[in-house]
Simulated assay, not measured.
Amino acid sequence: MLSFQPLGDTGVRIGMGDEIRPDINRRIRSYCNALEKNEIHGVSEWVPAYCSVTVYYRPHLIGYDELCRRLEALAERVEETSEADSRVWVLPVAYGGECGPDLEDVASRNGLSASEVIRIHSRSLYRVYMMGFVPGFPYLGGMSDSIAAPRLSNPRPRIPAGSVGIAGSQTGVYPLETPGGWRLIGRTPVRLYDPDRERPMLLQAGDSIRFQPVDSEEYREIRERLNRGEYTIRHQSNGEIQS
């Protein structure tokens, strides 16, 4: 059951549930695919979120009521997206030390060792529910509550690109150097956002991530290979790991 509400005078929010769940995420992805395949005159773009899709439109081309009618009718033509259509990216991560200055703190808060935090964090499959506050930032679901930790009371003014952090029961990756208050446990050399790539953002909503622990030497080697254009990020699709 869809719900519609205006978002300013150029947007409509389509609610698809009130919980962060994989089945709702699949429904949102399927609906976005339908928007892609069935152009609605006057619609300029759409933005998927945890439990909703926001559709932006040009009110001089289509009115709010007419748009809602067409968006509701579109729901009847949605083809369900399967999990096989989702990509699983494998991101190498150097945990702790300079790359993860808050790893020991996260471990201490949860009565764990640093190696246990790494094991728990890297064994999960994380779903990209939506893309956030800077280009390429993935909001992930699937982290174990056993390694949850609150945001820093005083955010850092500069966080290196690629930093992997924890905030509450969420984990995420900073694609750019920005301020931030998440507790940093590691860093990946993979660029989640690169304006010079044909497709600047590596990830998209509906993808999944696995974090693969690497040591500091492997991290430097991968970073150098990336800089030379010799490293291809692995991803898994339909059960196969691809390079």
Rank of each mutant, 00 (worst) to 15 (best):
R119G: 15
Y129C: 12
I159N: 14
M130R: 08
D145L: 12
S113M: 13
A161L: 13
G165R: 12
P157S: 15
Y126K: 10
F133C: 02
Y139M: 04
A148V: 03
L112Y: 00
P179Q: 09
T178K: 01
P150C: 05
I159Q: 13
G165E: 10
V128A: 11
L125Q: 00
A167K: 05
Y174V: 05
E177K: 14
G165N: 10
G142K: 02
G136M: 03
G141N: 10
G162E: 02
V164H: 10
H121M: 02
P160M: 08
S124T: 10
P135Q: 15
P160Q: 05
E116G: 11
V173W: 11
S163E: 02
G168E: 03
I120R: 00
A107S: 13
R119M: 15
V164W: 02
S146H: 06
G111E: 09
V173Y: 13
G162M: 03
A148I: 05
S163I: 00
S124W: 13
R158S: 13
H121Y: 07
V128T: 06
E116P: 03
P157C: 09
P135E: 05
P150H: 12
I147R: 01
R109C: 08
G165V: 14
S163G: 09
E177F: 13
M143S: 06
M130W: 11
L140R: 14
L176F: 14
G142F: 00
I118N: 00
I147K: 07
V106F: 03
S146P: 02
Y129K: 07
S153P: 05
D145E: 13
I120K: 01
Y174D: 10
P135H: 10
G162V: 06
T178M: 03
E177W: 14
E177L: 12
R127W: 06
G172C: 13
